[in-house]
Simulated scan of single mutants.
Amino acid sequence: MVATDGEGLHFDSVLSQFDVKPLFGAGEISFYTPTNVTLWLFLIVVSTVAMLVVGTRGRAIVPNRSQSIAELTYGVVHKMVEDIAGKEALKYFPYIMTLFIFVLLANFLGLLPMAFTVTSHIAVTAVLAFAVFFTVTAIGFIKNGVHFLDLFWVRSAPLAIRPVLAVIEVISYFVRPVSHSIRLAGNMIAGHAVIKVFAAFAGIAAVAPVSIIAVVGMYAFEVLVAGIQAYVFTILTCVYLKDALHPSH
């Protein structure tokens, strides 16, 4: 990360930690090539199974630690869906729960030493965001038909400005998956990049103690951000689902 020589101090690129690399060899990456992204996506799936299946297999009345974590997560997401999108949205709870667990574990696993944060790549977050976008749009038209377009027609506004507001609503609707994906990826990239910058200064004796304190503080902050970003991603999904189920302003 950092090296010194007669010419001065040299820093590696802070973005090198986000490079997609093949697991075997150093050849070209094709769609079938196992990469570090593939590995960590697999580990996310394994962690999900360990948390929600293996951890709750006992189904004890007095839960152990792993069962308590799984039940708490289930309860938080269930209440989130019901409070934001209504009881009618609970039929879509498994999908939203899956999104939350995936983003949460991807963010937390990315904080491990030598790990790869898959949610730092827009290719991953865009797939998640566009999946939400197309899903809620389909639900909106299936449930409401053409009345789903009422979402863009602000009936509470004066008639003269409704067309202008409709254009704004349409633009903001189609921007949703972009903001949904960039928000998550941007926060993951920024936090990890700052940690690497602070860590690079640890090689300089004069500022090493300050650098270490800064890394510890930033790491603690990133743990908080990892949870918050998963929560925000899920809340926005619930808000979009609510609009699909109840499009009238």
Rank of each mutant, 00 (worst) to 15 (best):
K87Q: 11
I29M: 07
F148Q: 01
V223Y: 02
F130N: 12
I61G: 00
T135A: 13
Y74H: 15
G227S: 06
F133Y: 15
K196L: 10
M114Y: 12
L52G: 02
A129D: 12
V45H: 10
P22K: 01
L23A: 08
I142W: 08
C238P: 03
A70T: 10
A230H: 04
G140V: 00
T137K: 02
P247W: 02
R162S: 04
V223P: 01
L104C: 03
V14P: 07
K21I: 12
Y32H: 03
P63D: 04
K143P: 04
N107L: 05
L112G: 07
L184S: 10
G86V: 10
V127L: 15
I139H: 03
V210L: 14
A26N: 15
T237D: 07
G8C: 10
V132G: 00
G75M: 09
S248E: 13
L111M: 15
A70M: 09
V76A: 15
R162K: 14
D19N: 14
I122W: 14
V77M: 01
A226F: 06
I96G: 07
R59G: 02
T48S: 13
K143I: 01
M80R: 10
A129E: 10
G191L: 12
A89L: 08
I182D: 00
F221T: 06
P209G: 04
T234M: 05
V127I: 06
L109T: 13
M80T: 12
V136K: 07
V77A: 01
V46S: 02
W153T: 02
F102H: 10
Y231D: 03
F24L: 13
M1I: 04
G27Y: 04
S47H: 08
N144H: 08
F198V: 05
D19I: 00
Q17M: 11
L165P: 01
F201I: 00
F130H: 06
L111N: 13
S68P: 00
G27N: 06
A199G: 01
N64R: 07
S47P: 11
S13T: 11
E169C: 09
N144R: 14
H249F: 01
A220V: 12
V215Y: 11
A138T: 12
E82Y: 04
I212E: 12
N36P: 09
V154R: 09
G140A: 06
Y240V: 00
A131H: 03
A206G: 09
P63H: 05
T56H: 06
A230Q: 04
N107V: 06
G6D: 13
V2D: 05
A85Q: 11
V223I: 15
H10C: 01
I171M: 08
D243C: 02
V154G: 00
I168K: 13
G27Q: 02
V194E: 11
G25M: 05
E222N: 13
V136Q: 13
G6Y: 07
H10R: 14
L39E: 07
L9Q: 00
A123S: 15
F233L: 05
L241E: 07
K21D: 01
Y74N: 10
F102G: 02
H246V: 13
V164G: 05
F108W: 10
K79Q: 12
A123T: 03
T4V: 08
V197I: 14
H246P: 00
V127D: 04
